[in-house]
């Protein structure tokens, strides 16, 4: 079958989709958007979390056909989403354009292997969108469907607190500080 839906503001079309294919498979293998992760494909880990018409869902549990005509936001679209909400993207050579939540995860050391990160970012972004200053208990509740095997979650809590604090700041007011200023870029093969 053919499925057509919007991903990160762009219309995407996929042909020859099998009935059993999940939204996660179509995003990763047919649309060239592998940012959403495939840690369990059982609806248990949250690494595939995307927004479907604004709601956080596990993309591995959604059949591709159910998404026909709807709107999906993945980790690849978080920066645009933040910009649409009027949040200030990060500046600097390496992290230019990162949304506040993305930047906070880097700054707080919330990323180790990073396999849980895309799903956590989408879930944390939705939390802060609805609750500008979440308590620790709120953060734990909102992220309880997202497994991380590396960090022990402490730095993830730090990151969400930091992102919430920065998002709450009017543009131009110095952002709360976390860690040194280091920049990265991806180069060609040597």
């Amino acid at each position: 079958m053919r499925v057509t839906f919007t991903v990160n503001g762009r219309r995407h079309e996929a042909d020859d989709v099998w009935e059993g294919e999940s939204l996660l498979y179509v995003l990763r293998e047919r649309m060239g958007l592998p940012g959403s992760k495939n840690a369990c494909e059982q609806g248990e880990c949250g690494s595939c979390t995307v927004r479907l018409d604004g709601e956080s869902v596990c993309a591995c549990l959604v059949a591709a056909g159910q998404v026909e005509g709807r709107e999906v936001v993945t980790v690849e679209g978080l920066a645009d989403l933040a910009r649409q909400r009027g949040e200030t993207p990060a500046e600097g050579a390496a992290d230019a354009g990162l949304s506040p939540v993305q930047k906070a995860f880097v700054d707080a050391g919330a990323v180790q292997c990073g396999f849980c990160t895309p799903g956590l970012l989408v879930a944390a972004d939705e939390l802060i969108e609805h609750n500008a200053s979440p308590s620790d208990a709120d953060i734990r509740e909102a992220l309880s469907g997202n497994l991380c095997r590396c960090t022990g979650y402490e730095t993830i809590l730090d990151a969400v607190r930091l992102a919430a604090a920065r998002t709450g700041q009017p543009a131009g007011a110095g952002a709360p500080d976390a860690g040194p200023d280091a920049g990265t870029s991806q180069g060609g093969a040597i």
Partner: peptide, 13 residues
């Protein structure tokens, strides 16, 4: 406590 060089790539997907 420098930040991960691969951190930006990991948060953008």
């Amino acid at each position: 406590s420098t930040l991960r060089p691969d951190g930006t790539l990991k948060v953008t997907g």
